[in-house]
Design a protein around this nucleic acid. Structure first.
Lengths: 213, 213
DNA sequence: TAGATTGTTAATCGATTAACAATC
DNA sequence: TAGATTGTTAATCGATTAACAATC
């Protein structure tokens, strides 16, 4: 599927706002200002206000945004207020790391199963999550009501694993491989690309070293 | 440091171009067209040409770009043609996954040491990379000529580990925690934020389910 | 040659930033 | 009240896309 998502840059910033606001919530103060959030994240206050506006939250001049409602509004906008059941496909180092990543619980993301074709892993548990064989994909996904697959296999297996995932009825894939997956029209793919983050860092480092010379 | 990087979106796309071009290189064809790359990645040809232009490469009308030179130009622009020596700080699941991620070798990124404060890990090796105690940070970094730290500790330890990294003389940090690090002016930080990728996916899924109803 | 492709210049689009009135 | 902060409207900025001449 080729959805052109509006406000993508704003949506990408919302999770860091949420993180800050949740920390602020512990202070007990019922209002938080956009200015305060902006300072905390080195952003412009106007950008924070614009971003928060897309969630539909209404603030109060002079006071700021009501903390409880703001958290609820962001979570609702991100659909993080509903449980999302996901499976890890590829229970290697990265897959295991994601299963153990506690932060996802705060996003409504529950990894409830893992799949691998390594028989020495099948039947075992990783962070209390059961590992199944790839041939059980369809049955387990249906039984456990899984609607999202997180793809963490080595790249040579990426496309074939993807095909199996799609055949099992999954319509959304979070792709951690560097392979551009070929999927039917109605399947959503979000690629998480470590290399592009490193590209930015690498160019920044190169520019800094030039600056000095 | 607060560098405003020009062409950031283009830079983020360069690694996927490089990946495609390297695969194409195996066909033996000495020229590759921007149109072909665009098709492969579901992009517009004009965008590919504009992106490649920032590397300084010159193509030939009708034929395309010379494959060897194009690869060299992208790698040079990204500074991936020089060896970058890095250390993992936090040798947990994610740290181990990154140490084992072979793709980084293609980017000139060599992870040559790991650090952890878990004594049961210190002295052992992960994928042939030695794990040191946090107290050895400064000594090892100097001895091994390490100039980049990859931060993969649990978030409660993020800021203190960061402080130790900076104290050890490192001036660039690739931050995989969800903590906004406080660093001196001259330290580069690139944050790799899994949550923001998931936010995009989550909103796309919500919108699709609305569409149908 | 003819036609595919590059690369430049201009137009469009969307995101960020600025200005400022409204208001608690 | 005074002043900090919101939210709207407009301006700016940068990225993407379009048009098209140049060319191998």
């Amino acid at each position: 599927m080729k959805t052109k998502l509006s406000y993508a840059p704003s949506i990408r910033r919302l999770p860091s706002y949420l993180h800050i606001i949740r920390a602020f919530q512990r202070t007990g103060d019922p209002y938080i200002s956009g200015t305060w959030i902006a300072n905390e994240l080195n952003l412009e206050p106007i950008q924070v206000r614009k971003d928060l506006a897309i969630t539909g939250i209404a603030g109060k001049p002079k006071k700021g945004y009501p903390v409880e409602q703001l958290i609820a509004a962001i979570e609702h906008y991100l659909a993080w207020d509903v449980e999302q059941r996901a499976a890890i496909v590829g229970a290697g180092n990265l897959g295991s790391a994601l299963i153990g990543y506690q932060e996802f619980r705060n996003h409504g993301l529950h990894i409830v199963a893992a799949f691998d074709n390594d028989l020495s892993k099948v039947g075992r548990s990783i962070h209390q999550v059961q590992v199944y064989g790839m041939e059980e994909l369809k049955a387990v996904i249906e039984k456990m009501n899984i609607t999202l697959a997180i793809l963490t296999v080595p790249s040579p297996y990426a496309q074939s694993s993807c095909d199996a995932i799609v055949a099992a009825g999954i319509r959304a894939i979070w792709n951690f491989t560097n392979v551009k997956l070929k999927v039917p029209e109605d399947v959503l793919v979000q690629r998480e690309d470590l290399s592009s983050g490193y590209a930015i860092l690498s160019v920044m480092m190169r520019m800094r070293s030039k600056e000095v010379s």
